[in-house]
Nucleic acid binder design. Sequence first.
DNA 1: GGAAAAAAATAATGTACATTAAGAAATCAT
DNA 2: ATGATTTCTTAATGTACATTATTTTTTTCC
Lengths: 193, 193
Amino acid sequence: MEYELILKNISRFIDLNPEEENFYTSLLVKRIIGKKDFLMRPGEIIKNEYFIVKGCLKVYTIDSKGVEHISMFAISDWWTGDLSSFLTEQPTKYYIQALEETEILQLSKENSEVLFEKIPKFERFYRILYQRSLISYINRSDQNISVSAEDRYLYFTQKYPSLLNRVSQKDIASYIGVTPEFLSLLRKKMSTR
Amino acid sequence: MEYELILKNISRFIDLNPEEENFYTSLLVKRIIGKKDFLMRPGEIIKNEYFIVKGCLKVYTIDSKGVEHISMFAISDWWTGDLSSFLTEQPTKYYIQALEETEILQLSKENSEVLFEKIPKFERFYRILYQRSLISYINRSDQNISVSAEDRYLYFTQKYPSLLNRVSQKDIASYIGVTPEFLSLLRKKMSTR
DNA sequence: GGAAAAAAATAATGTACATTAAGAAATCAT
DNA sequence: ATGATTTCTTAATGTACATTATTTTTTTCC
């Protein structure tokens, strides 16, 4: 069934009875984002959070020199969006683009407020979800200032093996913070050992 | 009164009645960390979260070459600890050291579980706290891969002006991910403009 | 207050990574 | 399938930042 994956995602942290499950899924909107289409562009005020059912997206900014910097990839069973814009109602600076045809479920800000009122244990769900995200972002920002590009690449290959064949090297380079040329060189050096 | 600051911190996101306030503060333990003393060392399993009443701490790791990497500073009205060790009960990799005599309030894991049971709206408090932390760590990790050292330093001076006179340049250099020598050079270059 | 220790500045040299440019390989669109 | 795009590789050169070493300044502490 359509909502199986998202309900399973939620049941990792909280238990819902069938009635609550129905209420929750009634708040969701399903969307398909075609390959290369955008889910978000800079300047928009983000009114939703997104759960990825199927597919793959990249979240990135473009700097003043026109260079793309990938902030994260989002695949099946992950959440994405722009928490900052969602919370502050300021325009986002991110692009989110589908690398493949992608199916998402979106939950609007109004509906998430309704949700917290009606089923307060969703506060717990998000508490735990954000707690765990926070841990991985703390790690990532520590790593970005203390670890060489080669080790960041190695870490990426170990942490996200499923992305290796799905995402271009150019995008991986952007994610780990180097140019595609330098990553190509690194990979050559690493393979001759 | 002793708990004024922490109760004010909490009241930013949730309302507590006097009874709840008393119950909450009864779960806290007050500690003083002397200058240069450690609140945490690698290998320990972290059983508390810490709120800083007064003083200043640095959170850092030491890499395989013996180089210190500062992950964050923590000052009055901030929370600190090691969420990862706290959650997973694995040994921490962090040192937390007081840069000045520092007064903290600690909440143990057991007590935080009691707290969530007795006053579920603390789930909401932590949901919002983590959400906001997450936003700033997402920013920081984006910044670390896409922004020059000079701009990271500028951003630091703007975001944490109060730390500039309190923390050594060497520690600021570590936080932004450069050597103290290079930060010194940057500052000289910046001052002659 | 003065010696010792730590932090900061300066400078020379070294290295990780960026930039530019060009060709080869893979992917895409008709 | 075949040309057109995009991605990947390779290589030369350039630059941001690291390393090492020395000197100056500031802080610590008895």
